[in-house]
Design a binder for these strands. Structure first.
Lengths: 118, 118
DNA sequence: CCAATTGTTCAATAACCTTTGAACTAAGGA
DNA sequence: TCCTTAGTTCAAAGGTTATTGAACAATTGG
């Protein structure tokens, strides 16, 4: 893990909410949740924003403590920090994901066929 | 009810999260939750911001569908839209309020002694 | 080594957010 | 009627956010 992440207790509720309060980032988180356990690289999110813009949004998610980003080769493997978020804010992530799943204003979670190769 | 409110299904998740992602508004919501059932007027929130600024934040909360504001005389009576929020985003409000209660970075919920007179 | 792939950084821009004080409206009481 | 109380509106300032394209760095495969 090369990139800077907050520790679990540095994660602030207001910050997490603010970061999730953006449609692009909410779509990213929903997509991560739909593939939970599988680390996804940035290119998996290109439906939601341009490459440059993804770099920005993924950094916001990481800095807020919502995601963990691991550098592997030229890739960044991204996962939800479910354990830390659940410990810190029980039930929050689940209710956000469930609500996002019902939200028609968000782009649908697409089905790329190829997962990241381990 | 004079002031404009979104209907329950106009309430957007991203917007609710964005609006709650501000420490002042989070403190207001937490305070409302701590007195749930009791309509509070604006002056009850003067610990959190100036009068002018409260007007701004309370409008944001109302426009996002988080609170309901009723004009009574020169007062505005403010309540949480728990029913609508729970129907739309089950569990969200409770987990936010619970998390906010544990968050040391937010101002404590103070105990004014006098409730609004019915 | 060369080229392609992955993603970051930078500067610029436009939009939006928060906060302020001064001026305002509207209702209620003396 | 006059004053007070409760909140709103306005314009301005300063800050942050989201988005873009061009340029960059780093790893990997041929």
């Amino acid at each position: 893990m090369t990139l800077p992440h907050p520790t679990a207790d540095q994660i602030s509720l207001a910050n997490v909410l603010a970061v999730l309060g953006d449609p692009t980032r909410l779509a990213i988180v929903r997509y991560l949740a739909s593939k939970e356990g599988v680390p996804l690289n940035c290119s998996r999110f290109l439906d939601f924003a341009s490459k440059t813009n993804l770099s920005y949004h993924l950094a916001k998610l990481r800095e807020a403590g919502v995601t963990r980003t691991e550098a592997v080769g030229t890739s960044r493997l991204i996962t939800l920090r479910r354990d830390d978020l659940d410990r810190r804010f029980p039930g929050l992530l689940d209710s956000v994901i469930a609500a996002a799943g019902d939200d028609a204003s968000l782009p649908a979670v697409g089905g790329h066929e190829i997962e990241v190769r381990a």
